[in-house]
């Protein structure tokens, strides 16, 4: 464990990503302390440039951009994390059953998985949110629904590879049930790649969320980075700061998530360990 941390810390990029993510987390926690007012509240004259009374300026309606970014970080993280967890849950269930039972079950489940993979993720997410009506839960459902196939294929592959190992037979030989073998023995053995791929999935989920909000498919009552960008798009030439700062926030957060994900993958994947 300690050796893993040391290896992770040696990777400068991963360390940078971790620092960025830490700052985002600080933002998430401190948003209501730094900006006790509702981020939708009008606080001053519209279109004030950054550096004046408001650190990052105000938008077309006179809302504080910095407050919007702080509260938007909560939305991004909430949706990114819950959607990823849900996707991992579905992926483990589908991939695990397919990889353990094989045969016809596997055939059906993997065709369903591939079916989901062939539909462009973002288009499907838009469709699902449009059908469910825009809200935070429907965004989470939509993002999870387009993100699970990768996990399912990964878990299936790991289960197939582990299924041939003698310890699975030995567990069965000691009277363990299928569920016990799947959840107590096979799953912990393929956790490292799931963690690595899952952490990268958070970045994608944040991007999809921003995209949905930008298109007006986010929850209209919840502040979000995509929503601010979409509001600032019309006045990009007069007031560049409205769209730019939340854009930078998205860029840094997703970059941080990906760098940490890559770092984790390197630490957890024995094949890349000795690079």
């Amino acid at each position: 464990m300690r050796a893993g941390f040391a290896r992770f810390a040696r990777n400068r990029l991963a360390l940078f990503g971790a620092v960025v993510l830490l700052l985002v987390l600080v933002l998430v926690v401190s948003a209501p302390l730094a900006y006790p007012n509702n981020p939708f509240q009008l606080v001053g004259k519209p279109l004030q440039p950054p550096g004046g009374a408001f650190l990052l300026g105000t938008d077309t309606l006179g809302r504080d951009v910095a407050a919007g970014i702080a509260y938007g970080s909560r939305t991004s993280m909430l949706i990114g994390l819950s959607a990823t967890l849900a996707a991992i849950g579905i992926g483990i269930l589908v991939g695990g059953i397919a990889g353990y039972y094989r045969g016809r079950v596997e055939l059906v489940l993997m065709r369903v998985t591939e079916f989901f993979q062939t539909i462009p993720a973002f288009v499907l997410a838009i469709l699902i949110v449009a059908v469910l009506s825009p809200s935070v839960p429907s965004e989470i459902i939509a993002i999870a629904a387009v993100s699970w196939p990768g996990i399912a294929r990964l878990v299936r592959g790991e289960f197939v590879a582990l299924g041939g190992r003698e310890f699975v037979l030995a567990c069965a030989g000691l009277g363990a049930s299928d569920l016990r073998i799947i959840f107590r023995h096979l799953l912990p053995n393929c956790l490292p790649p799931i963690i690595a791929v899952g952490s990268l999935l958070i970045g994608t989920a944040i991007l999809i969320e921003a995209g949905l909000a930008f298109l007006g498919l986010g929850d209209p009552n919840v502040m979000s980075w995509g929503l601010i960008i979409s509001a600032g798009r019309a006045v990009l030439r007069q007031a560049w700061w409205i769209a730019t700062f939340p854009g930078i926030a998205i860029l840094l957060t997703v970059l941080g998530v990906n760098l940490v994900g890559d770092g984790l993958g390197e630490v957890l994947n024995p094949r890349l360990r000795n690079r």
Partner: peptide, 14 residues
């Protein structure tokens, strides 16, 4: 009960 040939692979590594 059964004992297997290769004790390395017959015990769960985690």
């Amino acid at each position: 009960s059964m004992i297997f040939q290769e004790p390395m692979t017959a015990l769960d590594p985690v």
